[in-house]
Amino acid sequence: MVDLDASALTTTELNRKLRELAAQGTEHIHILNPQARHNIAVGLLDTCSITIEGSVGYYAASLMDGPQVTINGNAGWALGENLMKGKVVLTRNAGASLASSMRGGEVFVAGNAGARAGIGMKGGSLVIGGDAGFMTGFMMQRGTIIIGGDVGEGVGDSMYEGTIYVGGEIGSLGSDAKIEEASESELIQVWETMERHGIHDRKKFTKIVSAKKLYHFDSLERLEKRAV
């Protein structure tokens, strides 16, 4: 394990150091004193495990393809943005635009999330233990969002594909979002996911999907179309 004191490094130096250590095969990296700074652990493409002791700012653990990052604190806006593969765990609360445009992997927030969690999500799994804010899942295109607590107004607004599960109250559905009965196997999968994160309250989750009344696109991307 390698310890890095973030207070002694610029953000560029810190991220460069992380990339070097991950490329060298360092299994675990421990970051101290992040002091809610932005852009910590960004652009990491090698598999490794990183623990950040304290709160981070915007875009933490974003543009990643592989690492597992645990943050013992809060996060600002856009935690786990554009995650391709790997895992991000946050022990406290996240700001707005959590896991925006993520394409794979898993983001878990033990506390609450701000507005627009999972905006433009294109894959992977976003799990929020607490409440989620305004327009959660806005324009999501794929993937799964699970919210253990309540969700705000406009959930699933303009979603194309993907599924949102809400354990608590729903402020309101967004445009073109609808409630659909969750199957037993889907509920079991949701419960098992929550239990993996230490949440054992087996709630009756509400499933939200696109009503597809505004759906004027096919679901394949350019390269996928070529393959078909």
Partner: peptide, 11 residues
């Protein structure tokens, strides 16, 4: 300077 509980006001 130490870790804090902070709230993010919503809409």
């Amino acid at each position: 300077p130490d870790e804090i509980d902070r709230a993010e006001p919503q809409e």
